[in-house]
Simulated scan of single mutants.
Amino acid sequence: MHWVWLRWFQPVVFGFGVGVVAMILHECGHLAAAVALGVRVKRIGVRWKGVFTVREQGTVRQNLLIALAGPSVNLLLIAVGPWFPMFGLANLCCVLVNMLPIQGSDGFRVADCWRRIREGEPAN
């Protein structure tokens, strides 16, 4: 009887693990962009919402590119969907959720940077 429960639980654990990998790769995109743009990363951590990074404040242009880097990695990883559908779906979900303009999300940061650039704030 306990094997039936374990058979149900295994896909849940596997799916959770695939989602965590997608989130880690998403954060690696932010980290790579920050390093490439010369913005110092202070800390990397995990909380109930997922993995996060704390970094120095960059210019508006740097912040825009760093905010777009994580979802861009997930967009690229959706391409593995034909070979590993669950990983492709996890990356699609990561992009969709992160690009919502909700306080603290990449979508909010992108919208804020875009607004600041349109209002005439220097991008550099």
Rank of each mutant, 00 (worst) to 15 (best):
M86C: 14
G58N: 00
K42H: 15
Q103T: 13
V13P: 04
P101N: 08
A33E: 04
L25E: 04
R47V: 09
V54S: 01
W5N: 14
L89F: 07
W83K: 08
V95A: 11
C94F: 06
A111P: 08
T59I: 00
E56I: 01
A79G: 03
A90I: 09
W48A: 11
F16I: 04
C93L: 15
V95Q: 11
V39M: 00
V41R: 09
E121V: 12
A111T: 11
M23L: 09
G70W: 05
W8V: 14
T53M: 15
G15V: 03
L31H: 11
G45M: 04
G70P: 08
Q103F: 15
N74T: 07
V13G: 06
W48N: 05
P122D: 09
I102M: 09
V60H: 05
V110H: 01
L100H: 05
P85C: 05
G88E: 05
V39N: 00
A34E: 00
G104P: 10
V39C: 00
M86Q: 15
D106A: 01
V4E: 13
P101I: 06
V13E: 12
N63G: 15
N124C: 12
P82A: 05
R40Y: 01
A69Y: 01
M1W: 09
A79M: 08
V73T: 03
V97R: 04
D106L: 01
P101E: 06
Q62E: 10
A32C: 03
I78S: 11
F87V: 10
V18A: 01
L92D: 08
I66D: 02
T59H: 02
H2K: 14
L89H: 01
C113T: 10
L64T: 02
P82F: 10
N124R: 14
V13D: 07
I44K: 12
F9N: 14
S105H: 03
P85T: 05
L76S: 02
S72T: 07
H30Y: 10
M23E: 08
T53L: 15
G45F: 07
R47S: 13
M1N: 09
T53V: 14
L92I: 06
P122E: 09
W5C: 13
A123E: 12
W3Y: 14
L68K: 08
